[in-house]
Amino acid sequence: MNQKNCTWVTEFLLLGLSDDPQTQLLFIVLFLAVYLGTVLGSLLLIYLVISDSQLHTPMYFFLCNLSLADLGSSTSIVPQALVHMLTKKKVISFKGCAAQIFFSIVSGATQCSLLAVMSYDRYLAICNPMHYCLIMTGSICAQLALGCWISGIVASSVDTIFTVCLPYQGDNKIAHFFCDAPILLTLATGDTHKAEIAIFFMGVVILLVPVSLVLVSYGFIIVTVIKMKTTSGRLKAFSTCGSHLLAVILFYGTLIISYMTSKSSREQIKHVAVFYGVINPMLNPIIYSLRNKDVMRAFRNAINRKES
């Protein structure tokens, strides 16, 4: 082995999404527009929920936490990607790469747990409405939200530690537009078996367990809705769950494709990562706002207060 291959890696070169200048310009415009939309949409939704007393309910409390996780996910990825698209030196330090892995997984894993908790909230509201207020108290909601963030931190810590503690020598080119744990494992020069098992296990826990909880919750919801005698009641129940179900499908679907795939296909999934890491955080405020009468009413009231 020559001296070059024995050199410990202190920084990584992110190859990005494309070498073509026109395609890269398109990605710059897309990433910038989507990031601004994510920041504005998430902050606006949080502001409306805080300022409007009628939105002080468990569902909107969890939605605020989801918006914060969206902001964290997008901010941990997009600004750095934009800087690299605009400069010739597309490098990131080893510590910077580790930090990006940690914060992006914290946000993503927290979103997984929050979506599961939100499905449980919808289950209680539709299937057990008489006891909903007794179960989903303020303290219980705060504990559930805190548990979601703690689970995100634990999952991220495990993935980050197992990834960055591996030896990296020689090759430092990452075929991605941000540091992602599964992609980074392909560059490690030591035995990655334990790290792959740990990351796969955390993927099962943080992805498949929440998905299972969502499926069970919606299974009970569907049975309850079918038993409803009035069409208006069914439509109201489905409209209540529609936005959340769409967000669940978009988020979990792309994450499962990215993190539960085989090692040989990891370099082919970076375009899928654009959706869950860049576009999806912008979609959540839109999904939960445009078809939500309460949010639109709060938005109109906020505008009227500014004009008066």
Rank of each mutant, 00 (worst) to 15 (best):
M1W: 07
K4E: 14
T10H: 09
L13F: 09
G16T: 06
T23H: 14
L25N: 12
F27W: 06
F31G: 06
L36A: 04
L40A: 14
L40V: 14
G41Q: 03
G41C: 08
L43K: 14
L43D: 07
L44R: 12
L45H: 14
Y47K: 15
L48W: 02
I50A: 06
I50N: 12
D52T: 13
D52A: 09
L55E: 01
H56C: 08
T57N: 05
T57V: 02
M59I: 14
C64S: 13
N65E: 11
S67C: 15
D70Y: 08
S73V: 09
S76E: 01
A81Y: 00
L82H: 04
H84K: 11
T87Q: 08
K90N: 15
K90I: 14
V91N: 08
F94Q: 05
K95E: 15
G96Y: 02
A99Y: 07
A99V: 08
Q100Y: 06
Q100S: 14
F102M: 03
V106C: 15
S107A: 15
L115Y: 04
L115F: 11
M118T: 05
Y120N: 13
D121Y: 05
D121F: 05
A125T: 12
P129I: 06
P129H: 11
Y132R: 12
L134V: 15
G138E: 05
L144G: 03
A145V: 09
A145W: 00
I150G: 09
I150F: 09
S151G: 12
I153P: 02
V154S: 07
A155L: 08
A155Q: 04
S157G: 10
V158T: 03
D159Q: 03
I161M: 12
T163F: 03
P167R: 06
G170I: 00
N172G: 10
N172P: 04
H176T: 10
D180L: 13
I183F: 06
T186V: 05
A188D: 05
G190M: 07
G190L: 05
G190D: 07
G190V: 06
H193Q: 12
F200S: 06
M202G: 05
I206G: 00
L207S: 04
V209M: 11
V211T: 13
L213D: 09
V214R: 01
S217V: 03
F220N: 12
I221W: 01
I222S: 10
I222W: 09
I226K: 15
I226T: 12
M228D: 07
K229L: 04
T230V: 11
L235R: 14
T240K: 11
S243G: 15
L246Q: 05
L246I: 11
A247V: 04
A247M: 08
V248I: 14
V248F: 03
V248L: 07
I249R: 08
I249K: 09
L250I: 06
I256P: 00
I256S: 03
S258D: 06
S262H: 04
K263G: 08
K263Q: 14
I269N: 12
I269K: 11
F275H: 01
Y276V: 10
V278H: 00
V278F: 00
I279V: 02
I279N: 01
P281S: 07
M282Q: 06
L283K: 05
N284D: 06
V295Q: 04
V295G: 09
M296R: 13
M296A: 11
A298V: 11
R300Q: 13
R300C: 12
N301K: 10
N301Y: 02
N301Q: 08
A302T: 11
R305M: 09
